[in-house]
Design a protein around this nucleic acid. Structure first.
Lengths: 191, 191
DNA sequence: GGGTTTCTTGTATAGCATTCAAGAGCAAAG
DNA sequence: CTTTGCTCTTGAATGCTATACAAGAAACCC
């Protein structure tokens, strides 16, 4: 009942918890691989389960729904990206955007899926909103550091986000991408 | 066999054709209404059929698949929009973009759906690509008329499209929209 | 009338996300 | 050692989906 500090006590419970994390990780990495290659709709829960060698409904012990599994996968991808974030924090805006594009390009499939499921799934909507708040805050911070006034920075952060999303959703050449990022950053930042 | 000009001849065949068009129109308007209110995934073929008082598989005589029905609905919305297009052709860029936003806002659901189904449906992909070519050509034309060089106009057309799509996909205030359009048009157009 | 074309339907299939109740395996408690 | 309880897995079922196929009805042509 009462929370008590576990000293040298029973490790058994711990071992169980570790197993849970391990299984979850295996599950999410399999789901991620299939979601990214076959798409969310193209990947059935049964397919994931088959790949793992378990019964389809076993997945529902770990995640309440397919959407919650997707959220877990999204967080997984995000945490992998966050590891590489420090490497570019002091690069200029344009390079930051190019980096974000390369990062999310691998999850291109999922970006569209999230947007498509916004209306139908509350849990996805929640994740999406939180994600956007995080990204926009980061971009605003960067812009302000470059001397952009707060109100203007807020607007430009939204624009930058839309551009990244557009580039992710639509195929384009390296030249197009370069031209867009170049134009945006030089139009956005003070001379 | 040989194509022959129908004079005063048999109207029967004509009558059939008219009936077909009428039924198609009724079908597509019902589908449009449901798609827009419940979403594409949220609207089953059975639901549409029930609304029309026919058997579910009847729809498959008119359209080969649900995606092809969606394409028909998209063309329907487009043609309704095209009717109102002449009214704004000589307005400035900013007003054109605001108009496009208002037009597509009613089909917001469908914009996301089209993007989500790009990978899975060839017929949707085809429609989408054609639509984008059309829109971008129109925007490029406008920009060039405002004195923007061709290469730059091409890039800006893509940016403008991404901004419109972003504004459609994400909820925002009237002030935000105004600020983004204002900034974009004044950054894009030569002083 | 017969034959052909256009449209509608009953019936069926394979797949989907998800639920539920029953179990297996193991840890701790008596 | 046995009983209790927790964690995890499963078989089986439900109601839904898009769609296929073949049989029928109705309108047309000759």
């Amino acid at each position: 009942m009462t929370g008590q500090t576990v000293g040298e006590g029973p490790l058994a419970k711990n071992k169980r918890d570790i197993d849970l994390k391990v299984k979850q990780d295996e599950l999410e990495s399999t789901a991620a691989r299939l979601f990214l290659s076959l798409g969310y709709d193209g990947t059935s829960m049964s397919h994931i389960a088959r790949e793992l060698g378990v019964a389809p409904n076993t997945l529902y012990w770990y995640y309440a729904s397919k959407d919650e599994l997707l959220v877990a996968v999204l967080n997984r991808q995000m945490s992998h990206t966050l590891v590489r974030l420090p490497a570019i924090v002091d690069k200029p805006l344009k390079e930051k955007m190019a980096w974000a594009l390369r990062e999310f390009e691998q999850s291109r499939e999922l970006v569209t899926t999230v947007h498509a499921r916004l209306e139908q799934s509350a849990v996805i909507r929640e994740w999406h909103d939180q994600f956007h708040r995080f990204v926009e805050a980061a971009v605003i911070h960067t812009l302000q550091a470059d001397g952009v006034a707060q109100e203007r920075a807020t607007m430009l952060a939204t624009v930058g986000t839309f551009l990244v999303e557009g580039l992710l959703a639509h195929p384009h050449s390296e030249r197009q991408r370069e031209a867009i990022l170049q134009w945006f950053t030089e139009s956005a930042l003070p001379a």
